[in-house]
Write a protein that binds this DNA or RNA. Structure first.
Lengths: 255, 255
DNA sequence: ACGTCGATCTCGAAC
DNA sequence: GTTCGAGGTCGACGT
């Protein structure tokens, strides 16, 4: 249930918002405001009409009429306060760690809408880098015939993780770096770091393969000089394989 | 001026939104919806109450009741369409490059608010990396005594730009990489790329210095192995210097 | 158009 | 708590 008001006086707005924040409602305000921010950086935004959204977890967004990104904002866990100062409504949002404060001053408010939204719907994102990895583990031939993954993740001291670690059909070690998007040269340099570490520990050839849907032109010479191979793999193909393996698992249960 | 309606029927909503999009209004919708996204990745979001904002530049945000980030979105330049399908309102936002589509299906709408917002207020952000650079150019001793910047930017083939390029008091070349936040190892590797290029062209010693408010622990060994130096510099200090140089300039005009 | 890099990045996971 | 890497990153700037 939404409480909607338009063209309120500043004192009406201040009182209403006070109650909405106390009830931890989601709050939408459209009005003419000025914004100041002080924290990791500092900023000022002069008067103008914007959309402000304040959520129950203490996150805040101030949106101008254009652009995907909020002009000013605070991440969750802010403490919100409302004050009426003369003919303006002041909303302050403060948080510790890092210490920062966002201040929004309204001189005119066209709309306030607040209430408790009920949202339990599941969100699912398909074909992330992690899922491409699952697909390769489910169908190693996506990389090449005879490839056998060893451990899902092999920790390499000081340099993080490899994506997949395995052996090829001739017994050479294979280290695979997966990228969901076209591989840039830092994919290569990252992988090269792993390879160097591993080669000091292991007494047999180690191949490095970048697996990605595409290869940036600038990355090509880098790969070549580092003797790192490239295997093309589209996320869509991974999705199909994941779907089919899921179906297989399901059919095993059914049968 | 804002057109505000609450608890509309789906056909009312479809008609109103149609007009709002044609007029390139900013549109706010609160209601129970389902969302699908298909493009660089794919996602589905099941039924739930959310806040949707659609801007005149074709950017879209779908916000759940918690979290700073939109659960689904589109950057500017989308083509928006509304359709009534049975008892639901369908909003589709498509863009090319990359080819992707966002579909929002409403089965209940608590609020629509739309109109043209007037926002010309200036936005100013203080102490960006660019401003730290300005501060160093204004006060080179921030880096070290006797440092002289040469050109503001020195293009290095294929690798982008250095931040500052200069000479130290002994005549050695100095290449500086500025970071606004604690320097990570990629600051070092980035700078190392520049240095390698320059060293093939120049016949005298070239020093590399990372200037940042802090240095991540993991970056320290990388810097050491690359023989890159670190100079601590806080954005706040840069801000003070910029302010004082501005004051100086101002006082020059005044006097 | 593509590539590179900064960001009040945010977010999550690992240590 | 800090550190580190990923992101449908976005956005800006240069080629």
């Amino acid at each position: 249930m939404l409480n909607i008001r338009s063209n309120l006086t500043m004192s009406e707005a201040a009182e209403l918002l006070e109650g909405a924040f106390r009830a931890r409602n989601l709050v939408i305000i459209v009005g003419n405001c000025r914004v100041e921010y002080e924290g990791r950086a500092s900023s000022t935004l002069e008067w103008g009409e914007r959309v402000t959204v304040i959520k129950k977890d203490g996150s805040i967004l101030v949106h101008r009429p254009t652009g995907y990104e909020p002009v000013n904002w605070q991440p969750p866990k802010c403490v919100i306060a409302v004050n009426q100062v003369d003919a303006t409504v002041l909303i302050t949002a403060s948080r510790a760690n890092p210490r920062e404060t966002l201040t929004i001053e309204f001189k005119q408010i066209s709309l306030t809408a607040f209430g408790s939204l009920s949202d339990t719907g599941e969100f699912a994102l398909y074909v992330t880098e992690a899922q491409m990895k699952q697909a390769i583990l489910a169908a190693p031939s996506l990389v090449e015939e005879g490839f056998k993954p060893l451990e899902e993740e092999k920790h390499v001291e000081d340099t993080g993780f490899t994506d997949i670690y395995g052996v090829d059909k001739t017994g050479f070690l294979v280290v695979i770096e997966i990228k969901r998007n076209a591989a840039t040269k830092d994919a290569a340099t990252q992988l090269y770091g792993y390879l160097e570490k591993i080669r000091t520990r292991v007494d047999r050839p180690v191949r490095g393969i970048v697996v990605a849907p595409d290869l940036r032109k600038s990355a090509q010479p880098v790969l070549q000089s580092m003797k790192i191979e490239f295997v093309k793999l589209d996320p869509e193909k991974c999705f199909k394989i994941l779907k089919s393996t899921k179906d297989m698992k399901l059919s095993q249960f059914i049968s």
